[in-house]
Simulated assay, not measured.
Amino acid sequence: MVVDDQPLWRDAVERDLAQAGYSVVAVAANGREALARFPAARPDVVVLDLQIPAPDGVEVTGEIVRQDPSVRVLVLSASGEQGDVLAAVTAGATGYLVKSASREELLAAVRRVAQGDPVFTPGLAGLVLGEFQRRSETPLDPAEPALTDRETEVLRMVAKGMSYRQIAERLVLSHRTVQNHVQNTLRKLQMHNRVELTRYAIERGLDAD
């Protein structure tokens, strides 16, 4: 599903996705249309501009992720401002690209986001994780659910930015098994996406060698 209030841009993104073999199940020009069409369209990935007529992209992201936690939201915005990026990720976006990204970068981002991998325009990932680290001043809870050794091992690799496929190859596991480990870890920690999981791992130093 493609959501953007600029017809030329929306049509171009839709065309690029269709040419790459993706099925565009819906388009919308504003937040109201996006929320109205989402339940029937049930897209796997939503490519969304933040600066759209109300409700804006952050509100739309939060609402569609609430309706369907499995949906992946890739923000495609003209803004690379820290506040916009953090608001989108906090609302549940899996990825964030600025509109200066090339067609190839967009298609690669859609492919990775569909797999559940967080994708950011270079420089933004560190900003997001750094900010979440600074925000977290909560002491560790000794009653936190225990992770298995394998789940911890997978979590370390997630924290280092490795994709599911790379983790599967490193541990000689199937892609599906790695996904299951991540889903189990998310459920145990009561988290919703890999960005939150990565933040958790970095806060605990699991990204260090």
Rank of each mutant, 00 (worst) to 15 (best):
D5P: 07
D5A: 03
Q6G: 05
Q6H: 07
L8A: 15
W9I: 15
D11H: 03
A12D: 00
V13P: 08
R15W: 09
D16L: 11
L17K: 12
A20N: 15
G21T: 11
V24F: 06
V24T: 07
V25D: 00
V25R: 05
A26W: 07
V27Y: 13
N30D: 05
G31W: 00
L35Y: 02
A36C: 09
F38D: 05
D44N: 12
D44F: 09
V45E: 07
V45N: 10
V46Q: 01
L48G: 07
I52H: 08
I52K: 04
P53A: 08
P55A: 03
P55K: 04
V58W: 00
E63V: 04
R66H: 13
L74G: 08
S77G: 14
S79W: 10
G80K: 00
E81Y: 10
E81F: 06
E81T: 03
Q82S: 04
V85S: 12
L86K: 05
A88S: 10
G92F: 15
G95R: 09
G95D: 06
Y96C: 09
K99M: 08
K99V: 04
L106F: 06
A108K: 04
A109H: 12
D117T: 08
D117F: 01
V119R: 06
V119N: 06
V119Q: 06
L127C: 04
F132S: 02
F132A: 06
R135Y: 01
E137S: 07
P139N: 13
P139M: 13
L140P: 09
L140V: 15
L140N: 14
P142L: 09
P142R: 11
P145S: 00
D149L: 01
E153K: 11
V154Y: 07
V154E: 03
V154R: 02
R156T: 15
A159C: 12
G161Y: 09
S163G: 12
Y164T: 03
Y164S: 00
Y164Q: 01
Y164C: 07
A168I: 00
R170S: 10
H175R: 01
T177N: 15
T177L: 14
N180I: 04
Q183F: 01
N184G: 02
Q190V: 07
M191K: 06
Y200C: 02
R204T: 13
R204I: 13
D207N: 15
